[in-house]
Amino acid sequence: MNENSNLRISFYPHIRDKASTSRIMLDVAISLLPATIFGVFNFGWYALLLILVCVGTCVILELIWDLGNHKRMTIRDLSAVVTGMILALNLPPTLPLWMAAVGAAFAIVIVKLLFGGLGQNIMNPAACAKCFLMICFATRMNMFVYQGVLSTPPIEVLRAGGTVDLLQLFLGNTSGCIGETCAVALIIGAIYLFIRRIIDFRIPLFFLIAAVIYIGIYSLFTRGGIDMTLIGAHLLSGGMLLGAFFMATDYVTSPVSRPGRIIYGAFIGALVCTFRLFGTANGSVCFAILLGNLVVPLIERITRRKSFGKEE
């Protein structure tokens, strides 16, 4: 808006605390480290290269944008680093580097900077970029290589009706996207986020509860009983945990009010299961998160708190 004016109109929430944004982002980056390290360990040096390309592209593009706009250096708040990391963790470990770079550019420039930068994006940049890449480069985004051979990720195995080893899923010795395989690493990161009070428990909790209930009812109707292994397998495979703890909880694109967050979490959880059980399994979490982002304005309208002093 008018840069000369000292008055700034903005959308709620109105409390801004720029000084601690970088601290929060640093904490998120730290919480992603276990999954990142395991990803490199599980998939090799190329995975590290992918991560570096994503983070590097995000940071460089945001730097160029800042320089061009004569604004304060927003890269200092580390949000570009976090976006790059989350995107990389969502990519298959053998994706060509240039595709990853295109995705990272899309995330930073189009989803985030074009809408006004941090705090003003309407959708989660990393999730949006992953979906963008899935549309653009469908074959490579669906190609998973594990230990040198082409393999089917657990998510696809479940979809086809097969069974997966729950212990291996928990420990992460399976194929899939770079950061989504190791449940242990992701849970450690999530615990860190909870300790540092960065994320609210409501969104992940109701996300996962909705998923459990949905899959439970599904297995009741199709397999004659509540199949706990199926529920467990779905929770531990694909981007479920990564999405629930690290992506759906993004402040900017999730509701502000507490009841809103419950609805949002449950909505995304139900969508993920719908996509996984009745449609394509790969990338279901990211698409579900995007659709959740779209209904956030509606959710917030429904769960709007009464204005102080207003009769309602």
Partner: peptide
């Protein structure tokens, strides 16, 4: 092999 197919779809067109 270096094409970005989304450009031919609606989202690409919009952008």
């Amino acid at each position: 092999g270096y094409s970005i197919s989304i450009a031919a779809l609606a989202p690409g067109g919009f952008i």
